[in-house]
């Protein structure tokens, strides 16, 4: 009845999203946007987990995605607090200007 989509198609879509996330992580100069591209990469990996969980008819992959979501929420809270602290001391969000440890 319904057309079948191979699992490899979902994996390729996840690879596309992950690569765009890597490109955004390397190219973007704004600290918040870099943080958002990390979230994009986490989402791409979650998609592969769900695709494999569907392929093997197991719920373990979906439970793993649940834990990844929890860790991503904790990471976002701490990371954005660090960004606020950086902005308060250095008055900028450009990663090229935040080079205190380099000089």
């Amino acid at each position: 009845m319904s057309a079948q989509v191979p699992v490899a198609a979902y994996l390729i879509l996840a690879a596309v999203l992950f690569s765009i996330g890597v490109a955004a992580f390397l190219i973007k100069r704004n600290l918040i946007t870099i943080f958002m591209s990390i979230e994009l990469m986490l989402n791409a990996v979650n998609l592969t987990f769900v695709a494999f969980a569907h392929m093997w008819h197991q719920v373990s992959g979906q439970i793993f995605v649940f834990f990844v979501m929890v860790v991503a929420a904790a990471e976002a809270a701490v990371g954005l607090a660090i960004i606020i602290a950086i902005f308060r001391t250095r008055e900028t969000l450009n990663v090229d200007s935040i080079d205190l440890m380099k000089s």
């Binding site: 319904s2 191979p6 699992v7 690879a15």
Partner: peptide, 13 residues
């Protein structure tokens, strides 16, 4: 992914 795609069955959604 593409070299291993024969190991993946078509997902019966």
């Amino acid at each position: 992914f593409l070299s291993e795609r024969h190991a993946f069955r078509s997902s019966n959604v």
